[in-house]
Amino acid sequence: MKNDKTKKIAVYGVMVALAMIFSYVEMQLPVFIAVPGVKLGITNIVVLVSLYKMGDKGALFINAVRIISVSLLFGTAMSFAFSFTGGMLSTIVMILLKKTNRFSTVGVSVAGAVTHNIGQILAAVVFLNTTAIVWYLPVLWLSGIISGLIIGIVGAMVEKRVSKIKVP
């Protein structure tokens, strides 16, 4: 019983650390298209695998701790607001889609990526006090579908390989 708890803490710590490293790597990647918010979203691999291995609360917790830590290390109050709105919205949508038991990892990931970008635009509308940014919605929506597809496929592969590992 006590061993289980220790193992849980360790695994959560590893996942948060991994998500932070992925966030950092993502920041170093060159921006492919000159639209802010277009990115691969490799961090979502960790959130996806957490969702399937540790469940709803695990994924939400790991992503929240990741966003707070990364924002404290590299971000500003503004970037925290953007990440947090997008991250929480997408994690909640992924949890709900997974609950329907109708979609594979790919479908869950695509929905997560698109809602992440919608969340960031909503945050921009609220915090920058402008509706002008809605212009980017189609681009970010489409880029979300593409990156969600790629991340979903990779996530499914990772999940398959770690399926034997038991997380309490």
Binding site: R102, F103, S104, V106, G107, V110, A111, I145, L149
Partner: peptide
Amino acid sequence: KIRYDAVLI
């Protein structure tokens, strides 16, 4: 599931 994925996308 893949069929549902395709519909969603």
